[in-house]
């Protein structure tokens, strides 16, 4: 077992465990902390894949900014438990568990049975650099970038409208 594999296993288990904890923990502050660790673990996976730029962005944007935003959101809102309907019935839980389990089984079957050709030569990691990403992003995918700009504008407008406190 090479060191890469060990790091992968540690990071993967960490990411999944933290993601499960986000759903399982009771207090929202604990959930935010475990989400931050989940983001860090995913950043580590990016580093393992040789995508340093994406890994650093993951840490800056997700582990940094998004987590801080969640903490702000937590501080500024009152968070009572609001449910629209009664707790899910036992039958529903069992059914959804079976459904998700089947899906997971199929996916694992598909992925484990896939024999991808072994790439003998180690890849030269040039694609993941900021220079390359910038050229592709603002060259080939410039329409997508502009589309993202409109998307963020629309999301911002909508968020402000819905979150705005009315002056009485």
């Amino acid at each position: 077992m090479n060191p890469q594999m060990i790091f992968f296993l540690v990071l993967a288990v960490l990411a999944i465990a933290c993601a499960v904890l986000v759903l399982q923990l009771k207090r929202i502050s604990h959930r935010v902390v475990s989400m931050a660790f989940c983001f860090f673990a995913i950043a580590g996976l990016y580093f393992l894949l040789g995508a340093e730029f994406i890994g650093i962005i993951q840490i800056i944007v997700y582990a940094g900014a998004v987590t801080i935003l969640f903490i702000f959101g937590m501080m500024m809102t009152e968070h009572r438990n609001i449910t629209f309907s009664a707790h899910p019935r036992k039958l529903h839980r069992v059914l959804s568990f079976v459904g998700v389990g089947t899906l997971l089984g199929f996916m694992l079957y598909g992925i484990l049975n896939m024999d991808l050709p072994q790439n003998g030569s180690p890849r030269v990691y040039e694609e993941g650099t900021a220079h390359e990403i910038g050229l592709v992003l603002y060259g080939h995918y410039v329409i997508a970038v502009i589309g993202m700009a409109f998307l963020l504008t629309a999301a911002l407008i909508g968020a402000i409208v819905i979150a705005r406190k009315e002056a009485k």
Partner: peptide
């Protein structure tokens, strides 16, 4: 990629609306 971004632009506007 553009397909997905167009879809999200439509969907996110619809969520807000």
């Amino acid at each position: 990629i553009t397909l997905y971004i167009g879809l999200e632009l439509l969907s996110i506007s619809s969520y807000c609306l």
